[in-house]
Design a protein around this nucleic acid. Structure first.
Lengths: 219, 219
DNA sequence: CTGTTGGGTAATGTATACATTGGCTGTCCC
DNA sequence: GGGACAGCCAATGTATACATTACCCAACAG
């Protein structure tokens, strides 16, 4: 994929962590991981360092690399930040006003969400949902915000997948998104921000309830 | 300072960049920097990687490490994010309600700002202002938000110093902060968020005007 | 004179060697 | 039986060596 081993290892490990192929509660030693990936310690260390910066692992000297579990407190922190930054993106996009390309992308993603839901393809729905949120922040034209939101989204990925088949109100989520698109198209920044903030607050609440119901703390 | 060479180099380089001892527009080669710091390339590379993750440098393979200039567009992005996250912190702190320690810290920092202003110590004022904003986010209890805000603040440091002696209305800034403390103490989350958002929006506007007046783009 | 191509070179990406240091285990003492 | 301590060992932090590769410059063709 990427041309340097460091980049490749970074992507690979990131993917493995997100897909639970590397789990928390267990130390991974540099040499072990390096051998497992077929590279030497140098690029592995660099990849691990980047993962630490992005919040995916803790490097504890001599105790190995630890996957960071996502607790309810973490979810709460992350959703709080998303609740601030995504409505900001919605407002900005509405006030640009949003280019047709952006509206088209958002619309396509909602359509995909609806199709996935009809087909009972939860994983597909989650991916389309993610794509929707990604497109929203991407087109708002704030690179740093985009990077922050994207990283946070990836951090909650495991928890989202875990709670996916217990979630209710996925169709309401789709409706929220349709309304958001309409407001963005209408150039109503305040309205768009408002709708999306409510959407986020609801998602946050539901997610925390589900996690506590499942008795999970530390995904 | 730090015990490992990587950490030390990271702090050192970060400081040098913030204080303009390393300037943009010029490539710094790994070996050169390593020699300059009296370490080998390995820890230097790791430090540079962290700096890149935090947005302070661009590593361009074979072209050296480049200090990232902060343009008006960058300032705009950064202030936008601060404008979302800091009012959030203010609201949270007000609704906790804020512990005495937090209020004391904030009050002490405003006092320092006022004292510095009376003494015409602009640099001292800037440091106290920074400490105030830092305390605000620190006590809001969202570590990730804290880290984001802190990093962004550091990124605009050079630009802030550059415009410092042209700024007007520093006393109004102090007043804003006093009002913010009062609202936090009163437990008025919405009010606190509102005041602080306005404060941030004003700061943002002033900063961009100053930078364009000075004809600077890329600090 | 301009554009292109090829070689030299130097910076990087990566592997590896080595010293250091902190964790762990087993023993001894209380 | 529990806790302190010492020694061992392994994992890391760091330096360094080496192959690769892309940049730069010069020479050449058009």
């Amino acid at each position: 994929m990427a041309d340097t081993r460091t980049q490749w290892a970074f992507s690979k490990l990131r993917h493995m962590i997100m897909e639970n192929e590397l789990q928390h509660g267990q130390p991974y030693l540099e040499q072990t991981l390096a051998t497992r990936l077929g590279i030497s310690r140098t690029p592995l260390r660099e990849a691990a360092l980047r993962l630490q910066e992005e919040g995916f692992v803790d490097i504890r000297p001599r105790l190995g690399i630890h996957i960071r579990p996502i607790s309810c407190a973490d979810m709460s922190e992350i959703y709080d930040i998303l609740t601030e930054l995504e409505p900001y993106a919605a407002r900005r996009l509405a006030e640009m006003p949003a280019p047709a390309a952006a509206l088209d992308a958002l619309t396509a993603h909602v359509a995909a969400m609806e199709a996935a839901l009809s087909a009972d393809d939860l994983r597909g729905w989650a991916e389309a949902d993610r794509a929707f949120h990604q497109a929203l922040i991407e087109h708002a034209g704030n690179r740093r915000a985009e990077r922050i939101v994207s990283t946070l989204f990836d951090q909650v990925h495991r928890a989202r997948i875990l709670t996916l088949n217990r979630r209710s109100g996925l169709d309401r989520s789709n409706d929220d998104h349709r309304r958001l698109i309409a407001l963005i198209r209408a150039g109503d920044g305040a309205g768009a921000a408002d709708v999306h903030r409510t959407h986020r607050e609801t998602a946050r609440r539901e997610m925390l309830v589900l996690l506590s119901e499942m008795g999970v703390d530390g995904v």
